[in-house]
Amino acid sequence: MVDIQTLLQILWTGIATATYGVLLAAAFSLVLKVVKVWNFAQAGMMGIAYYTMYVVIFRLGWPALAGIAASLVITIAAALAMEVWGLQTFRRRHSPSLTYFIFTLVVSEFVQYMLAMVFGTEPVSLAGNLMSSSTLVGGIVISRWDLTALGVAVVVMAALYLLLKKSRYGKFMVAVADNPHLSRLYGINVRPVYAATFAIASVLVVAAMYLFGTRASMVPNTPLEMMLFAVIAALLGGMGNVFGAAGAALFLTLLRAFSILVIPSAWQGLILYALLFITILLFPNGVRLRRRAKVQPVAATPAAEPAA
């Protein structure tokens, strides 16, 4: 029998470790929403972001903030290069959607092999010591990394919400996502909106990879498994529903965390593929909660006047 203290610890740890998955799922879903591309090249961008920080922090010995800044610049540049010299070319040629899918997948694989050639296949992390200082609160172990990860995720997702819902440029992004052709008629330049979308997604990716790298180590093919998680969350949360994908990522992380109570850790990787199969089969358009229809009061019909 599992005691309540253990369940609370699993819950807290699951919420904390869900942070980078939430950011990655939101990044993938944002590009899917606005650009209408299944951006599997995000796995390559994840590798570029991670190893840029690793080089700056450990090879050059610079502070972590410098590593994050350099990673932002290089990751955004790589994403924009893919958009300008890849996806825009396909749009001009009116290429089929399968072309975009294959291209992003090839970019991801190419980056993975290049990183493996340069850095090898030994796991590396972004922290000299992955053991973070912790405090016992009500019987639950809360580490400094947990609080940092939750703070970063909340701030970044709140900023994304304000950008999409409140800012003028965010409204441009929503308009392009709904109908890019109609947006052009209203004077919206679609190309900068696509470029800004990839730049914003790169910010989410860099934040996620920094959080991951300060908690665990990575090899060049690790982003592919993390990418699969983001795809499942995007499908489960609804096609192009950015915050739905983030919520689905939190749910999936907690599901995997609690599954350790019934499934051995050696089989944890199988859960992702089982969830992908179930999601595609049963929830191709995402999980939509039905709202109970409000009963409108029926106005009383005035009585007919008696005939004269």
Rank of each mutant, 00 (worst) to 15 (best):
A79N: 08
G269Y: 15
A79L: 06
A18T: 01
Y273W: 14
K294I: 08
A149L: 07
A177S: 12
F110R: 15
V107Y: 14
T121V: 07
L254T: 13
A16I: 12
E83W: 05
T19F: 13
R93V: 03
Y20V: 00
M157H: 10
I10L: 13
V37Q: 10
M82R: 10
G21H: 08
A177Y: 12
Y210Q: 09
T253H: 12
A266H: 07
F198E: 06
R92G: 10
Q42W: 07
S202M: 03
I4V: 15
L211W: 09
F198K: 08
M173G: 04
G21A: 13
T301P: 02
H181F: 14
A27D: 03
A177P: 06
A249C: 04
T301D: 10
Q5W: 03
P63M: 05
G61W: 07
S125C: 05
F58Y: 12
M157W: 03
S143M: 02
E225Y: 04
R290T: 14
V156S: 09
E225M: 06
G86V: 14
M45K: 01
P223T: 03
A266G: 11
Y113N: 06
S125G: 05
F101N: 03
V84I: 12
M239P: 03
F212V: 11
V231L: 09
L250K: 11
A300N: 10
F229R: 04
L105V: 08
K166L: 14
Y100T: 06
G139N: 07
V205D: 11
F90D: 04
P180T: 06
A230E: 00
V231G: 06
R92T: 12
L228E: 00
T301Q: 11
Y273P: 07
V55A: 07
A293F: 12
L224M: 14
T17R: 02
L11K: 03
P63G: 12
F172G: 02
A127N: 06
I140N: 03
T19A: 12
K166P: 00
L261N: 04
I232H: 02
Y186P: 04
A66R: 00
M218V: 15
E109W: 12
F103T: 13
T52P: 02
L252Y: 09
M1T: 13
G237L: 13
Y186D: 08
V205N: 09
F212E: 04
A307G: 02
I57Q: 10
A159L: 11
V156F: 07
A196F: 11
T197Y: 04
L255H: 06
V2K: 09
A246Q: 14
L289N: 14
V155E: 08
F198D: 05
N285R: 15
L115W: 00
K294H: 08
V55I: 10
A153N: 00
S217I: 00
